[in-house]
Design a protein around this nucleic acid. Structure first.
Length: 574
RNA sequence: GGUCCCGUAGCUCAUCAGGAUAGAGCGACAGAUUCCUAAUCUGUAGGUAGCAAGUUCGAGUCUUGCCGGGAUCACCA
C-alpha cells in the first residue's frame, strides 16, 4: 500500500470514529477524499481535500470541518505537523521514514511495481489502426497505432483483460480498386506494357511486388480475361499481401494484434441482417426520407426513401441510413453489425481509436452501440488529431497521388520504433502533434525519449559502480535529503498515476510521468556533483551507500515499469 | 451553415472526474565539468489561460454566446 493509500485508509478510520462519536452525520461518502502531493512543496508533504469534499455533506464550513480532522490526523504515526490552508486544505508533514517505507515495496515488486487489479479482470476490446488494406501504413497511422497499443498495455497492467483488434475494411469499393490496380501490375509482371496507371487506381509502387507475386502464382491464367473472372481471386490475394505488409509494419512498431476481423467475412455471414433485425425488434428503425444537411446542400441532392436508424434518440444529430436506395447495405450498416459482433464476443466494454477524419462518426457509433447494448457507456472513442511531419521546422510534403507519402516503415528506419512510440505519447490524443525528424533524433534534453532512457541507463551505471552488492531490507533511515525524498515521493506516485491513467484511457500521462521521474533522478544525480556528500556511492559509508543504492535500484525499476507499459526499451547503457 | 477537436509564457506543451500563488522543456540571460555518464544540472526573466457572461466556498477545467485555427458533413469507404 502506498503512503497515499495508507493515509486515505487511516483517514477513513478517523471519520468513522467521528461519526460514531456524533461529531459527524452518518452515511458520509468519503470516496472523493484523496491524499496527494501538494503542487507547491512549501505546503508540506501531503495535502488532503477531505474537509472541502465533505463540507457540504456534513453541513459545515470547510475550515471548521478541517479543525475537527486536524487533531486526529496529528496523532497518526509519523505525522510531524498538520495545518489548515487556503479554502480548507489540510497539509501534513510526515517523517521521512513514512516515505522511504515505499522503497522495500518497490524492490520486492521490481518492474511490476504499480501493477494493480483496478480493471478487475474485466474484458475490454480495443480496436485501433484498422487502416484500409490498400497500401502500407503511412506515418499518420502510427499515432493511432501507438496510442491504441499503449492504452492496451496500460489497461492490461491495471488488470483488464485486453483484446487488441484490427478491423479490415475488405468489402467496399476501395478493395475492388485495389484489385484492378494489382491486376495491372500483374499484367506488367507478365510482360505487358501497361503505360500510365489510370486515374482512380492506386499508382503506388508497392503494388509491383504484389503483381509479381500474382504472376508467379497464376502465370498467364488471368491475362486477357474479363474482370468478373479474376477480380475476386486477385482481390483476395492482393488484400492478403497488403495485410502481411501492414502486420509487419505493426510488428516493427512493437505491436501485435490479437485479432483481425474481416468486414467481408462478417457481411457474408449474414451478421448485418441479424444486427438490423436486432435494431428493428427494439424499435429503432424506420423507413423515411432524410433532410439535406443544414447549411450546405449537395448539388445533386435528391430525397430518397431509405431504411434509417433512429440515431437521434441516442444523441446523434440526425438519423442514419442503413440501406442504400438500391437496397444494398451502407458501410454504416456493416459497422453496426461489427460493433454488435464485438459486443457479443467481448462481453465487456469497447474502445475505438479513430483518426481525426472520423470525428463525424463518433456520435453515430456511440448511438448504435447504445441501441444494441441498452447501455450508454459501452463504447469509448478516442480521437487522435493530426500529425504534422516536419524536418527542422519545414513541413514534409506528402501526396498520396504522387506516391510520396511517408510510410511507417520510412519513419521507423529514420528514427526507430522507440522514438516514434514515445513522441506519439507526448501529446494528449486530442491535440495536434508536431513530429520533427530533426528534433526527435537529437540526443538532448529536448528529446524526452532520450532523456528518460538516459536516466535509466544512468541509474544502471551507478549500480554497476557499486563496490558491494545491494543489501535489500537494510535500513533506509539515512535517506533524508529533500532531493532524495522528492525522488521517493515521485516513485510512490506511480501506482496511483498508472491507475488513473488507465481509468481515463490516457496513456500519455505515463509518458509525462516518466519525464518527471527522470528529471527528479537527473537532478539528484547532479546534486552529488555540487555536494559530494549527496553521491550515491560513498567510500567507507556502507550503510549510507546501501540505502541510496536501494533508492537508485527502485528508481530503475519504476522507470522500467513505465517504459514497459508503453512497450519502450529500457536500455542499460547508452 | 451543422457537428466535433483545439486556443495556456516568444516557441512546443502539461495541469491527474473543479482546488491553494497556473507548471515543464526549448529559446534568452547568469552559472556549475580534476568527481557515480555535463547526452546532465542550478538560477533569473517571461502569463488577463482567445473574449464575455453564468454555475459555487472555489473555474484553464463545467454551461452559454461570440472570435480565431483544424477536421468532417445524405446512398463513398
Amino acid at each position: 500500500m502506498t503512503v497515499f493509500a495508507a493515509f486515505e485508509a487511516e483517514f477513513k478510520t478517523i471519520s468513522d470514529r467521528l461519526v460514531e462519536a456524533g461529531s459527524l452525520p452518518k452515511g458520509l461518502d468519503s470516496s472523493r477524499v484523496v491524499f496527494e502531493l501538494p503542487r507547491d512543496e512549501t505546503h508540506g508533504d501531503l495535502a488532503t481535500n477531505a474537509a472541502m469534499v465533505l463540507a457540504k455533506q456534513a453541513g459545515m464550513k470547510p475550515r471548521d470541518l478541517a479543525e475537527i480532522f486536524v487533531a486526529a490526523l496529528a496523532k497518526l504515526d509519523g505525522v510531524t505537523a498538520v495545518e489548515i490552508a487556503g479554502p480548507g486544505f489540510i497539509n501534513l508533514r510526515i517523517a521521512p521514514t513514512r516515505w522511504t517505507a515505499e522503497i522495500p515495496t518497490i524492490l520486492t515488486a521490481g518492474d511490476s511495481y504499480g501493477k494493480n487489479n483496478s480493471g478487475g479482470g474485466a474484458p475490454v476490446n480495443i480496436e485501433f489502426v484498422s487502416a484500409n488494406p490498400t497500401g502500407p501504413l503511412h506515418a499518420a497511422h502510427a499515432r493511432g497505432a501507438v496510442i491504441g497499443d499503449a492504452l492496451a498495455g496500460l489497461m492490461a497492467f491495471c488488470g483488464w483483460q485486453v483484446t487488441r483488434e484490427y478491423y479490415i475494411n475488405d468489402a467496399g469499393a476501395q478493395v475492388d480498386i485495389l484489385a484492378r490496380s494489382a491486376y495491372l501490375r500483374y499484367c506488367e509482371a507478365r510482360g505487358r506494357d501497361i503505360g500510365e496507371i489510370p486515374a482512380g487506381l492506386y499508382p503506388g509502387l508497392y503494388l509491383t511486388d504484389v503483381g509479381e507475386m500474382l504472376a508467379a502464382k497464376y502465370g498467364d491464367d488471368f491475362l486477357d480475361k474479363p474482370e468478373d473472372e479474376w477480380l475476386p481471386t486477385i482481390r483476395s490475394a492482393a488484400i492478403t499481401a497488403i495485410m502481411a505488409g501492414i502486420e509487419k509494419d505493426l510488428a516493427d512498431l512493437g505491436i501485435s494484434m490479437d485479432r483481425f476481423s474481416s468486414e467481408r467475412a462478417l457481411v457474408d455471414s449474414g451478421a448485418v441482417q441479424l444486427a438490423i433485425e436486432r435494431l428493428q425488434d427494439a424499435g429503432h428503425l424506420y423507413h423515411g426520407v432524410l433532410q439535406p444537411p443544414k447549411g450546405k446542400e449537395p448539388e445533386d441532392w435528391e430525397p430518397r426513401e431509405q431504411l434509417l436508424f433512429k440515431a437521434t434518440a441516442f444523441g446523434d444529430d440526425t438519423d442514419r441510413p442503413l440501406q442504400k436506395s438500391d437496397g444494398s447495405w451502407t458501410y454504416f450498416a456493416a459497422d453496426v453489425a461489427y460493433h454488435l459482433n464485438k459486443l457479443e464476443r467481448t462481453k465487456g466494454k469497447l474502445i475505438n481509436i479513430f483518426g481525426a477524419d472520423h470525428g463525424g462518426y463518433v456520435k453515430r457509433m456511440k448511438a448504435a452501440t447504445a441501441a444494441l447494448s441498452g447501455q450508454s457507456d459501452m463504447l469509448d472513442i478516442k480521437l487522435c488529431q493530426l500529425v504534422h511531419l516536419r524536418d527542422n521546422g519545414q513541413p514534409v510534403k506528402m501526396s498520396k497521388r504522387a506516391g510520396t507519402f511517408v510510410t511507417v516503415e520510412d519513419v521507423i528506419k529514420a528514427v526507430g520504433a522507440d522514438v516514434i512510440r514515445f513522441i506519439m505519447l507526448t501529446r494528449r490524443n486530442d491535440q495536434t502533434l508536431e513530429f520533427d525528424f530533426a528534433k526527435v533524433t537529437e540526443q538532448s534534453r529536448d528529446n524526452p525519449v532520450f532523456y528518460v532512457q538516459y536516466a535509466h541507463a544512468r541509474a544502471c551505471s551507478v549500480l554497476r559502480q557499486a563496490a558491494k552488492p545491494i543489501k535489500t531490507g537494510q535500513s533506509l533511515d539515512l535517506i533524508t535529503d529533500p532531493a532524495e525524498l522528492l525522488l521517493v515521493k515521485t516513485l510512490a506516485s506511480w501506482p496511483k498515476l498508472v491507475e488513473s491513467a488507465a481509468l481515463a484511457h490516457e496513456p500519455h500521462r505515463v509518458a509525462f510521468y516518466l519525464v518527471d521521474l527522470a528529471g527528479a533522478f537527473h537532478s539528484l544525480w547532479n546534486a552529488g556533483r555540487d555536494n559530494p556528500a549527496l553521491r550515491f556511492n560513498i567510500d567507507g559509508q556502507d550503510d549510507l551507500t546501501n540505502a541510496r543504492l536501494q533508492l537508485v535500484q527502485a528508481t530503475s525499476f519504476v522507470i522500467r515499469a513505465g517504459l514497459n507499459v508503453l512497450s519502450i526499451a529500457a536500455v542499460e547503457e547508452m
